[in-house]
Design a binder for these strands. Structure first.
Lengths: 157, 157
DNA sequence: GCACTATGAATGAAGG
DNA sequence: CCTTCATTCATAGTGC
C-alpha cells in the first residue's frame, strides 16, 4: 500500500464516519468540530485536522459539481427541474434561520429517515438545523478490536 | 499550462517575490505598496493589484489556519504551544506602536537574519516596524534573461 | 507501462 | 479578518 505518507490515505472506517456525518447533514464543520472529528478518527490511523477540513470541502464541492453537470445533461421538464428550482431558491444566499424554517425541517426529518434525504433538502437549512439543534452520534460497527466508538459531537459547546 | 485567463496564475518568480516579502514581515500591504509590488511583478507576467491584495490576504489567513488545523493530539507543552499562546496574545487586537516596541524589534533583527525569524516573531510588531522604518529590496536570482531586479519599496512615501 | 478515475491538496477569488 | 466556493494541481488506485 502506498504508505508514502506524502498524502493522507483515509482508512475505510474513517471514510465511513466522515460519510455518515456528511449524510447526517454536516457540510462545513467549524474548527471545533473538525478538531473533535479528527481527534476521534485518529483512533483508526494517522490523521490531521486539515484532512477532515479538506475532506468536507471536497466532498461538498464534488457533490455540487456532480449535480451541476447532471443539470447540463438533463434538459427534460421533470421533477428534477423542480428540485433544481428549489435548490436555486434556497441557495440564493438568503438563509432563513427563523423558527418556521427549523420546524419545517424537523417535519422533514420526521417523515424521512436521515439517510434517505434527497441531496437537495440537505443544504443550508438542514445544515443550520443540524448544527443548532442536533447532537448526533456515529456508531462504528464492531469490525475492530474495540467497542463501538461513540462519536458524539456537541454543537452546544 | 492553464492559460485559462479566467484567473490569475502567478509565475514562479512572482510567487518567490511575494513569499520573500511575506517572510520579511509584510502582511497587509497598503494600497501604495500593493501598487508598487504589482508594478514590479508585472515584469514577470500579467498581474493586477487585486491579485497582490488577495495573495497577501490568503497567505496570511492560511498560515494561521495551518497552525490552527495542524496540531492534533499534541498535549505536550512544547515551544509550539508557547508560540501559539504568544500569537494569541499579540493578535489580541492591542498592537503596540510605541518606541520601546520598535526598538525591541530592532534588537531582534540585529540578532537574527531576517529569513531565519520564526513565523511568530513576524507578527504585528514586526510588520509595523517593517512598514514604518524599513526599506528592503528583494533580489531575484539571475535565472532569467535579465539583470537582477531590485524591488525596492519605499515605505516613507 | 499507460490511460483513466477518484480524491487529497492547494489556492485564487470573493462574501460577509 | 474569517469563512466559503470554484477551479485546478497532484497522486494513489485500477483496469487494460
Amino acid at each position: 500500500m502506498g504508505t508514502k505518507c506524502g498524502r493522507w490515505n483515509p482508512t475505510a472506517e474513517q471514510v465511513k464516519v466522515l460519510t455518515d456525518l456528511f449524510r447526517s447533514g454536516l457540510r462545513t464543520p467549524t474548527t471545533d468540530q473538525i478538531q473533535k472529528i479528527s481527534s476521534q478518527l485518529s483512533f483508526y490511523g494517522n490523521i490531521e485536522s486539515k484532512n477532515v477540513f479538506y475532506w468536507f470541502q471536497n466532498h461538498k464541492a464534488r457533490e455540487r459539481q456532480k449535480r451541476r453537470r447532471k443539470v447540463l445533461v438533463d434538459e427534460s421538464i421533470n421533477d428534477e427541474d423542480m428540485r433544481i428550482q428549489f435548490d436555486n431558491i434556497s441557495s440564493n444566499k438568503q438563509i432563513n434561520t427563523n423558527h418556521e424554517t427549523a420546524e419545517r425541517v424537523i417535519e422533514t426529518l420526521q417523515l424521512f429517515p436521515l439517510n434517505s434525504l434527497s441531496e437537495y433538502a440537505e443544504t443550508e437549512k438542514l445544515r443550520l438545523f443540524t448544527e443548532e439543534y442536533m447532537t448526533f452520534s456515529c456508531s462504528i460497527g464492531a469490525e475492530m478490536d474495540h467497542p463501538t466508538l461513540d462519536l458524539r459531537l456537541s454543537f452546544f459547546s
